[in-house]
Design a protein around this nucleic acid. Structure first.
Lengths: 342, 342
DNA sequence: TTGAAAGCGCTAACAT
DNA sequence: ATGTTAGCGCTTTCAA
């Protein structure tokens, strides 16, 4: 039992290795490797014998060992905020499709919008030697990624830019989209327009706020402090913000909501009220058509696809300088944004 | 250049190894290993020197090599149908949280409801030696998994049962939920009730249909063939099915929809019609509260959490026999299910 | 066409 | 407290 003493816990539940297959088929180790990898130079008869041994033993190649020799894992990592968010599901799915087309697997992780957790996750993925990384950043300093990128981990940032480093980036036109949405409300006669957005440390939140200010400025409207609220997307926070703007002697007559989670809460608040209030939301939402919600739509799947394509282009080849892609948004008028001021 | 000739393509972009760190710090390899893994038996001074070398070199432990020795990858695989489906996002997220609590990463893959693709994905995950597997099956024969499970890959099936093998399974009470939903419609006076569900090869689809038939039988209602339609969840197909049931001399007065995707299309069809038709849908939907859609709700996050907990329990320990868990559903009345017959 | 030997980067076992 | 050696399962190289 010397063997057993050295390996008290059998690895992988004692899986057969190529060596075992070789012994059983009565061939050399390398011949098994050739068969498993469909390399040429094996007679049909030998191949058959090896195949039989593989099936009899239930052999499956250990990719960990393979990776160790080959250097590429054929896997990429995707770090986003929350897979349960309806915006990220389609994005992740699009990344997966591109990865699949390139023969790669996708390792997913959620940062929960926590910079530390993002870093922890990213570094764990690097330790697994993912070939590339797609990151929807929660952090605003990504210098921790520099050694990894130098070591060859292709990295693309999506939805928000990288902090303190140069890297490929795929963004939506948050500024332009918000400006268009707010201008739409202004065009329908509103002047007292509220903005409820995500936390100010999130790039898209401030960009959208900037778009709001731009549209207001272009219309010559002075924005009052009480019309703007940035913070967590927690329903209670959003509800309180909306109700504050809708109360008092001079309530807002329209709201612009900064993302899908804010929008759903705002819609619920407005549903409870009698006085009609106009609303345009950033991000489309399922069934928004039936509820008549006017939105600035961004294509999450396109963002994911674009990012993944950039990633594989970089993996496959040349070292062009970091590119920055900005995807357009689209205003979809469905009624809520066309309500006139009370 | 002999070295270069042997390694024409530098692995991992030439990352430093423990050996490099050891050389730079002037210590032995094992000492570096000790520091990296926070093992005891290193003087503070030595540790500092090693840490410095690690940072100077940008060293990151190669987990592929580690896995090869240790036998566990600290990763699990999740194979589902489509990450972009709002039902699976929360499920995946819940699995990830449990995995994270156990220090494991999650590798995600979508089968696109294709049995071959499911198998391909599952076996690729096994080749990477994931410690465990959570599968929402598209296939109905999982004997291909037997060698893997024997070799120690813990496997849990969710949402639908495994085919032809014994395995841990976490299901929702599709039969009971559908029966309750249909009984609810009957209690509100309906007798001509249509059922539109997913493809009949999907277990949940037939279970829900069975629930429909049970409720109808219990009420002594003879079901007409034209009231039942199973098939793809493609909007065109669902729309056609719904419109057929709502037309003719004796249209149905109520519909039961078999899952979230069917429901959204049915809701759109009903929105275009004048005559009110009652509706109960299986699965909850975002904003269903505002649209007043009565649903049979199942907790996707709970399903994911339960499955992952089973998985890790099995990984951590004893070999109890395969368990089958059935999670309850909950009827949420919001209006659409309480509309009386026309 | 086939196989033996070396070694990928790490950890376990065993010195010192 | 620290280092040396063997070997995880595979691919690469080179020889037969």
């Amino acid at each position: 039992m010397a063997e057993t003493a050295r390996h008290p816990e059998p690895r992988y539940g004692n899986r057969p290795t190529m060596k075992d297959v070789a012994a059983r088929a009565g061939v050399g180790l390398k011949t098994v490797s050739r068969v498993v990898n469909s390399e040429p130079g094996v007679t049909p008869d030998t191949e058959r014998r090896v195949q039989e041994a593989i099936e009899a033993l239930g052999f499956r190649r250990n990719d960990s060992a393979r990776v160790l020799r080959k250097g590429r894992t054929a896997s990429i990592g995707l770090v986003l905020e929350d897979l349960a968010d309806p915006f990220y599901g389609p994005l992740s799915r699009a990344v997966e499709e591109v990865a699949r087309a390139h023969g790669a697997l996708l390792i997913n992780g959620s940062s929960a919008e926590d910079p530390e957790r993002e870093q922890e996750l990213v570094l764990a993925l690097c330790a697994r030697r993912v070939d590339g990384l797609i990151v929807i950043p929660a952090a605003d300093d990504h210098r921790y990624l520099e050694p990894e990128m130098r070591a060859g981990v292709a990295t693309v940032f999506v939805d928000r830019p990288a902090g303190q480093i140069q890297a490929d980036t795929v963004l939506s036109d948050s500024f332009g989209g918000a400006r268009e949405g707010v201008a739409h409300l202004i065009a329908h006669g509103h002047r007292r327009i509220g903005f409820i957005g995500d936390q100010p440390r999130i790039h898209t939140a401030t960009e959208r706020l900037r778009g709001y200010h731009a549209a207001m400025a272009e219309a010559g409207i002075a924005v009052e402090d009480s019309w703007v609220s940035l913070g967590s997307t927690d329903p209670d926070r959003v509800r309180a913000a909306a109700e504050a703007m809708l109360s008092g002697p001079e309530p807002v007559t329209a709201l612009f909501s900064g993302n899908n989670r804010v929008t759903v809460t705002v819609v619920r608040v407005l549903a409870d009220r009698e006085r009609p209030v106009a609303l345009v939301g950033f991000d489309d939402i399922e069934l928004a058509d039936l509820l008549g919600i006017t939105v600035i739509s961004q294509d999450a799947a396109a963002a994911g696809r674009t990012a993944a394509e950039h990633l594989f282009r970089r993996l496959d080849g040349a070292g062009h300088p970091p590119a920055r892609v900005e995807l357009p948004t689209r205003l979809i008028a469905r009624g809520s944004g066309e309500i006139p001021p009370a």
